[in-house]
Design a protein around this nucleic acid. Structure first.
Lengths: 337, 337
DNA sequence: AAAGAGACTGGAAACGTTTCCGGTATCGTT
DNA sequence: AACGATACCGGAAACGTTTCCAGTCTCTTT
């Protein structure tokens, strides 16, 4: 069942059928209706390969996800998938390991699949413009603050919360509750990682509230936001010092691991130690105690990312760096002292 | 940069280039090498659309995921994606809502994308053979026990844990620990749902250990494995009766919600109530207390599903229904009495 | 009434592959 | 020396669309 059959059955030309299928104006209402009816009747579905072939492009947009079990990304992934479909595109998904190069992965994906656009979901994003230039199509980075660069870069778009400010506010929340000895267990940070960004917010919040950061209260872990590492890191911290009343964690899952470590060391939450985190996963609402956390608006981030990408497809000059709010969700893991 | 350019540069015909690219035997070693070098030199990538067009099929396999925030599926999705790529196929992913018809979604996907095969990830699967017949390509259902049917159905393949037996064993574990008053909060079950299947395992385990199932100890919730529903359901249960020492939950996340509800009602776990679940998510290892649960081998399920699908593609008569073990992971949420 | 504009339509090339079919060259066999 | 088999290669059709171009028909304008 091809376009030719439809054409024959309607006694019109192939071109005409193609035109009604593509909503071209130059076709009479009568013919359009006849073709549409026939298409309906035959349950005809256009051959995408043929279409892509002549257009020399596919209607696919690639999504590169750093697949290190970060639960936050699974929730934005669903929205992203839905949105992409809603716009009539198809999604081709590619998971990469935590040490892979996403820009490269994206470039390969683009060449193989003739993508229209690319969307990066999480992961480090400290590329130089020349590294970025291997991507020849519009792309947006979701969950990445280009904070150390500048928000007026015109090469690409981004959507994320303000990682620095969010960590800053989380820390201030602890300070507001009377905490002065505040610890943090953080994934190893390089220059432009999310970890670094959030850590700076933490440090600055302390300083600007008259608290000198105490590096014995900071424990770095390997990996990136993995729970076992966070658990071990918290254990090391506790071994070194117990002289803190609050703990900042940079993600919900690592926070849950940290709470576990605290419990295992006989610390009660929040009586002995208050814990605050960043992410706002559903599951942490059911943690015991309920985790106090800064909510990353997952759906909104997914929706915005795709929306911006669509704008970029329409207008090659369009570019946007969007920062979303990450409001506090009060749980029971923080108390005032 | 097309196959013609390669051909010209090597002064061979287009057919010959195509042959070396497709590993056909009828080409001399000398020519093959020359072509391969040129391909390398030009970083030539074949046009997939053209290829698909003439082959009248794409190398894509569709994955339909029931996207109701079930964390278990996100973990198998990653493996599935990796495996599909490893076999040289591309994955086209489609999330559906919790009330959608996955077979229909799969059929549409197939027609639109000219898929080679289909993989269903979770969700109800109580279709009749005639409903199944709208899918014209091989497919495998991951995480679905065709228990009420039979394991020798030849229309499709499946991979899952034995839901009935797993729930049975979980219940027996509680009984072994001395529990006799065992409650359960379960998603609403229809005839052939996973919920029904696991519930039957629960009931039979009780009976066959001389405990008459007490329906006041069973609370049904709406939705499917959602945390808020599980929380509410547990609250309703507690309101009705507190006369139980153990609670079986059918997934890890709902178990965490239930533990939360128990805590909120002043019940300590496991001192007052033991909780056991089925899933084995990473995150529940860090629940407080650590959740005792039956581990669904997510990676293995993903790997097996894709592997079986590949076999089905090679041999149209191939079909397989595989049941995997779900071993107990002892946490701290169950105690002996 | 002729001309020009505008609405609609059909023919055909083009997109980049794969694959069938036929052809040539080489080689061993008789 | 003639023959068949084998190995290798090129030509060309085919896959199902889109789109450019040219053409016809109708209508308005002069």
């Amino acid at each position: 069942m091809t376009i030719k059959d439809i054409a024959k059955n309607c006694s019109v030309s192939v071109s005409t059928v193609s035109r009604v299928l593509n909503h071209h104006p130059d076709v009479s209402e009568e013919v359009r209706q006849r073709v549409l009816d026939e298409v309906e009747r035959c349950a005809y579905i256009p051959n995408n390969s043929a279409r892509d072939l002549v257009k020399t492009r596919s209607d696919a947009i690639g999504v590169v996800v750093r697949g290190n079990g970060n639960l936050f990304f699974s929730s934005v992934l669903k929205t992203v998938s839905d949105e992409i479909e809603r716009y009539g595109y198809t999604m081709v998904l590619h998971y990469i390991g935590s040490d892979a190069d996403e820009v490269n992965a994206g470039a390969i994906l683009e060449r193989e699949k003739k993508l229209q656009g690319l969307l990066f979901l999480g992961g480090r994003f400290d590329y130089t413009p020349s590294e970025l230039s291997v991507i020849g199509i519009p792309f947006v980075c979701c969950s990445y603050t280009n904070y150390f660069g500048s928000l007026d870069e015109k090469d690409y778009s981004s959507v994320s919360i303000d990682d620095y400010a969010t960590a800053y506010r989380a820390t201030e929340e602890l300070i507001r509750r009377g905490h002065r000895r505040i610890a943090a267990v953080i994934p190893s940070r390089n220059d432009r990682s999310i970890s670094e960004l959030r850590y700076r917010g933490f440090e600055d919040a302390l300083r600007e509230n008259g608290i000198e950061p105490d590096e014995t209260l900071v424990e770095e872990t390997g990996g990136c936001f993995e729970m076992p590492e966070a658990y071990e890191g918290t254990c090391r911290l506790l071994k070194r010092t117990e002289d803190f009343t609050a703990l900042l964690m940079l993600s919900d899952t690592t926070a849950m691991a940290a709470m576990k470590a605290l419990e295992d060391h006989g610390k009660r939450i929040p009586q002995d130690v208050s814990v605050i985190a960043i992410d706002g996963l559903n599951v942490s609402e059911y943690a015991i105690p309920t985790l106090t956390t800064m909510i990353q608006p997952a759906e909104e981030m997914g929706r915005e990312s795709v929306c911006i990408l669509m704008n970029m497809l329409k207008d090659p000059a369009y570019t946007r760096h969007k920062l979303l709010d990450a409001p506090l969700r009060e749980g029971a893991s923080v108390r005032s002292i």
